[in-house]
């Protein structure tokens, strides 16, 4: 009987994996485009939305979050990164929109993390029938710490990507600028000589007359 129950629990708990749900997406946002994501959320669920612009333009984006009644519950204009936590007041479809409509030519890369429900407990073992042993609770603690590490790593990775992309961008721009400069120096030098030459050859017949 006991094993039967624990087996049932296990089965349910494997299913309950889905009760808390996290999505991490990195997507491209072309100029003057708007991208919306929908998510069904149940009442009283805590939800965290995090975003960061990885590349493009001034690294900013407009973000808005709508609840199922169409009310805007969170809105940011031209933000580079932010994190917002809220508790769903109604059951229904919440809509997150990222808009680049203010930008006419910069193509952007946006990272989004949408976490519905609390941080995942160890998957498969969310709820427990008996009191946890010390071993189990420390395993839980380690898991939490590791999740935090992964989180920091993600941020670090995004920062690194931001820095790298900026450096690559700078590199390319410096390259073009220097090519232009060389061309400018040579044209000006040659041009100067010819202008001067012209200047004197025009004068001479005039002086003789």
């Amino acid at each position: 009987m006991n094993t039967q129950i624990s087996y049932n629990y296990l089965f349910i708990l494997v299913l309950s994996l889905y009760t808390s749900y996290a999505t991490e997406l990195t997507f491209e946002l072309p100029d003057s485009a708007k991208e919306c994501f929908h998510q069904e959320i149940h009442k009283n669920t805590s939800v965290t939305l995090e975003f960061q612009v990885v590349t493009g333009g001034q690294y900013d984006v407009d973000v808005s979050l709508q609840d199922p009644r169409g009310q805007v519950i969170y809105k940011q204009i031209k933000m580079q990164f932010d994190s917002h936590t809220f508790t769903a007041e109604h059951t229904g479809v919440y809509v997150v929109c990222f808009s680049n409509e203010f930008s006419t030519f910069s193509h952007k890369l946006v990272y989004m993390d949408f976490q519905v429900g609390d941080e995942q407990p160890l998957p498969g073992l969310g709820e427990h029938v008996t009191v946890m042993t010390q071993m189990e609770s420390s395993a839980q603690d380690i898991h939490k710490a590791l999740t935090t590490i992964l989180d920091y790593q993600t941020h670090h990775r995004l920062r690194e990507a931001q820095g790298r992309k900026r450096a690559e961008d700078l590199n390319e721009r410096v390259l073009w600028w220097s090519i232009m400069e060389t061309v400018a120096v040579i044209t000006i030098a040659v041009g100067q000589v010819f202008v001067l030459k012209n200047f004197f050859t025009e004068r001479k017949p005039f002086n003789i007359k």
Binding site: Y18, Y21, T26, F27, E28, C36, H38
Partner: peptide, 26 residues
């Protein structure tokens, strides 16, 4: 409750039928 929360309730978005959608995973 668990099954209600199942896979069908993941994040979704709309695209046109001929549109292409890309995501980047580093």
């Amino acid at each position: 409750v668990c099954t209600l929360f199942g896979y069908g309730h993941s994040l979704y978005f709309h695209i046109g039928e001929t549109e292409r959608k890309c995501f980047i995973e580093e």
